[in-house]
Amino acid sequence: MERKLTCIICPRGCQLTVSGEADNLTVTGHACPRGQVYGINEVSNPVRTITSIVRVANREDTMVSVKTAQPVPKGAIFEVMSLIRNTTVNAPVKIGDVIIDSVYGTQVIATKNID
């Protein structure tokens, strides 16, 4: 297996090549140790923080922005989005309020205050 990636740790954007098997990955093309760690994580267990919005049912035309408190597996992005899209909340909402509990070991929380 071989994959080409662009490192995003710093603006330099090294072109990484990650090769080998799951527990024995080799990274080339990195200029620093952080790039090596990024390359291995990105191939073995890529994760992303998802940000989106949830409708506020008791306020007209109002959305509250939300995010996953921790990053979730990259492969689960659309599953988590579908959960978020099917959720509504009632105001008041405060930053940090749990909107959806237990999503891939983390929570979806509010990122905006709605009075």
Binding site: T49, S65, T111, K112, N113
Partner: peptide, 10 residues
């Protein structure tokens, strides 16, 4: 820390 736009504004 890494925040969203609305959190940074808040």
């Amino acid at each position: 820390e890494e925040l969203t736009g609305p959190e940074y504004a808040a």
